[in-house]
Nucleic acid binder design. Sequence first.
DNA 1: ACAAAAGTGTTGTTACTACACCCATGG
DNA 2: CCATGGGTGTAGTAACAACACTTTTGT
Lengths: 217, 217
Amino acid sequence: MTLGVVLQVRDGALRVLLWERARAPDIGRWALPGGVLAPGETLEGSIRRHLSAKVDVREVAHLEQLATTADPGRAPGEWEVATAYLGLVPLGVDPGVPADTAWHPVDALPPMAFAHGPLVLAGRDRLRAKLSYSNVGFALAPATFTLAELREVYVAALGHEVSATNLKRVLLRRGVLTPTGRHRSPGPGGGRPAELFRFRRRSLEITDQFAALRPPD
Amino acid sequence: MTLGVVLQVRDGALRVLLWERARAPDIGRWALPGGVLAPGETLEGSIRRHLSAKVDVREVAHLEQLATTADPGRAPGEWEVATAYLGLVPLGVDPGVPADTAWHPVDALPPMAFAHGPLVLAGRDRLRAKLSYSNVGFALAPATFTLAELREVYVAALGHEVSATNLKRVLLRRGVLTPTGRHRSPGPGGGRPAELFRFRRRSLEITDQFAALRPPD
DNA sequence: ACAAAAGTGTTGTTACTACACCCATGG
DNA sequence: CCATGGGTGTAGTAACAACACTTTTGT
């Protein structure tokens, strides 16, 4: 089967899309969306198909394979191979979700069904690592944004403070961000109008491939 | 099913363990070792079991999951989920392998069966990336070694020149390498005796977690 | 003495963090 | 004209590559 760890920043926290089981086993506990793999189906095709029952799949800006498990003992007599995907949804979009489905903070997960909890944490950790050496931010940020907004996304996803000043410089130097030339007018309290930026490319790119041991010139 | 991308540095090149098919389909082409997943079996258990038919599994110093595919069209009517693992064997050990099995350079692969070629390259790339930010080197190097030897391992694995001077400094600074205090006497041409080093820990550790965007102190 | 192999010292560079300072707007 | 939010300038630091130099051996 395939499972989806779909993450989004909402209300200042990194959240995961979960689904409350109404039937045994693990009734009342929360599970990752997903389902069986149809014969002849591609893994990515399968997870896209199952996710489309929960969210508008076009909202998923990035999707990558996370891990595969085949642990015995999920339930006695039950044993299944499950491939988990990591999906990222940009800030601000609100895909309507079914009534049994909700966004839970990854740092305060509800009681989880099966062994889905560790998969969520693996997805979070993968995201955090990639934020430092790639342009994955594009999949969490809206199309255009101010640096303050981008900073909030990074703070929520990384779980620690980030300086907008330095975030700007790092991402500009790496060529990940480009200014749009447009500005956003300030709120009621006043303030200088914020520059609007966008990600230069909206597909995954490694921007800092070799921290050390890089090839000689 | 499970597949193993087993890599080792031999004769100055990074090589992968392949197995020549004697039966259709893809007769005469080379395939990754592996086989079917038994019911109730763990993925890691499965690949260990299948590898033990080809190499002494105790020689595999590191094993990690690489990718899972379920591509239709491997062969018409044939469709299967395959999980690939990356295994690393230290320099110098020579596990006896069956007659139909051989070590091929990853940069000059023979005609490959199924879609196994890309998996080998994915394993190589994963290894290269981890060499820069973790201590995976332990799984490719012998228990103790001179810096010249370690340098050769890195050159073969990374595919570019590496300076022994700077390699030493980087790995010592990160606390990955420790001197043993012992020395190796020089060869017939003379030369200063080389210091023997070892990896401080022989299990995977991330040593350079955040290249940028590190948390504030 | 000299060649060979290994190890050390030093310099310059780059990418980053931290923090003080300056700019533009609304009330 | 001042509070508020945004942007810039600059200094300090750590990790690194490159390369010259020194040490220790065998012949």
